[in-house]
Simulated scan of single mutants.
Amino acid sequence: MTRARRRRAALLVLAAGLVVAVWLSLAVGSRQVPVGAVVDALASALRGGSAPVGTDASVVVDQRLPRTVLGLAAGAALGVSGALVQAVTRNPLADPGILGVTAGASFAAAVAVGVLGASATGGGVWAALLGALLATVLVQLVGASAPGSGGRGSPVQLLLAGLALGAVLAGLTSALRLSDPRAFSALVVWESGNLADRGWAGLEAVWPLLAAGLVVALALAPALNAVALGDDLAQALGARVWLVRVAAVGAVALLAGGATAAAGPIAFVGLVVPHVVRWAVGPDQRWLVACCAFAAPVLLLLADVVGRVVLRPGELPAGVVTAALGAPVLVALVRRQRVPAP
């Protein structure tokens, strides 16, 4: 099979997998809903009808549909942002959290909820988003101001700045939480990376930023192919490396920051998915970004479904499941094959 056919086949398989994952997310849980009832509920919702509370239609439309849409949006954002980070830093073990995005969101949400009294699903979402954006900008500024960076910042300098800032903010967040555990109790569910009980409010706040980040990522994909070859060769090919890097970091802030603000910190999606997709479609960033946008929601939705049934009638947050599944999968992939370069 030629590489082009292999890529098209991979995209079709991922699209089919996404359809299956969406159906499972709508039908499976502590209350099983037949396929026909799912279809009828969605059709009624499209017509503007309201479902009686406690019925299958109410479970699908009022509880699982917002949860599924959030999983689709957050998964796509995390997967694409992971691909961008690995391309910009030329580090196959990088993920969005390495640029301080997750730590910035967690710290800002802790201040808003525990100190200012905001709700975790209201003001806390906006605070987390603002914290992620500010942390990313600060990392970019610190990396660009390092000696010998020429005011632009190298991949290594960005990594070091992100790791340092992330460690500082994580320590401050832990100190705040320990200072008054009761005041910060509302953050426990958010920090576990949970898609449940979010409603539409969190997604409504961040979807324009997620859409903008995806558009920027797709537009940058051709230039990222040149950047992956190294700064000197990329410049020789006509790429403006510093501009591409700044735009990519901005897109990561929008995508990972928005996903973290809406769903909480979710580990390993942005790290594992680009690895798996890269082995399937190769290093071309155009295909990599597109396929990550399909593959990452599949992983996140399936993790959410597993979390619903493994402790039935209770639930595990999707972030806990992705961490439990992602770590051994990544170890197995690294042990069996050479880690592919972005």
Score class of each variant (00 low, 15 high):
46 L>N: 01
119 S>Y: 01
73 A>S: 02
156 V>Q: 08
75 G>K: 04
137 V>C: 09
96 P>I: 04
143 G>F: 02
234 A>N: 00
89 T>S: 09
295 A>T: 08
30 S>C: 01
3 R>N: 02
297 P>I: 05
117 G>R: 03
105 A>I: 12
156 V>R: 05
282 G>L: 07
57 A>F: 08
71 G>S: 10
107 F>P: 06
302 L>P: 00
181 P>N: 08
71 G>D: 13
166 G>R: 07
237 L>C: 00
253 A>S: 14
34 P>D: 11
254 L>F: 07
133 L>F: 13
211 A>K: 02
45 A>G: 11
66 P>Y: 01
5 R>G: 05
49 G>S: 13
152 R>C: 04
221 A>L: 03
30 S>Q: 09
68 T>D: 05
127 A>K: 00
260 T>L: 09
62 D>E: 14
36 G>W: 01
317 P>V: 05
214 L>Y: 13
37 A>S: 15
215 V>Y: 02
274 P>V: 02
13 V>M: 09
124 G>W: 05
310 V>T: 14
51 A>T: 11
250 G>M: 11
177 R>K: 15
25 S>N: 14
33 V>K: 05
303 A>Y: 07
71 G>A: 12
265 P>W: 13
341 A>C: 00
31 R>Y: 09
134 L>I: 14
161 A>L: 06
232 D>W: 06
300 L>G: 01
56 D>H: 15
60 V>R: 01
33 V>L: 03
312 R>S: 15
237 L>I: 03
55 T>G: 15
240 R>E: 13
40 D>C: 05
314 G>F: 12
230 G>R: 01
307 G>H: 14
222 P>Y: 02
60 V>N: 00
236 A>R: 04
121 T>A: 05
85 V>K: 09
55 T>K: 10
240 R>Y: 04
252 V>I: 12
268 F>I: 06
58 S>T: 01
24 L>D: 05
69 V>H: 12
338 R>E: 09
96 P>Q: 07
144 A>W: 04
141 L>M: 14
304 D>C: 08
302 L>N: 13
92 P>V: 03
45 A>I: 08
66 P>M: 03
198 R>P: 06
131 G>H: 11
225 N>F: 08
326 G>D: 09
213 G>F: 03
205 A>L: 10
302 L>Q: 12
60 V>S: 01
165 L>W: 00
28 V>P: 01
284 D>L: 04
4 A>T: 13
267 A>F: 08
204 E>N: 11
12 L>P: 02
190 W>D: 02
342 P>N: 04
39 V>Y: 12
96 P>Y: 09
33 V>N: 05
199 G>V: 07
213 G>D: 02
299 L>G: 04
314 G>T: 11
197 D>W: 14
152 R>H: 06
131 G>P: 05
300 L>K: 02
112 A>M: 00
235 Q>P: 03
170 A>L: 12
69 V>E: 14
162 G>D: 00
230 G>E: 02
54 G>T: 06
191 E>A: 13
21 A>H: 11
306 V>M: 13
169 L>N: 06
276 V>C: 09
79 G>C: 13
139 V>Y: 00
160 L>S: 07
226 A>E: 08
145 S>K: 15
123 G>T: 09
131 G>E: 03
287 W>L: 03
103 A>C: 11
156 V>A: 13
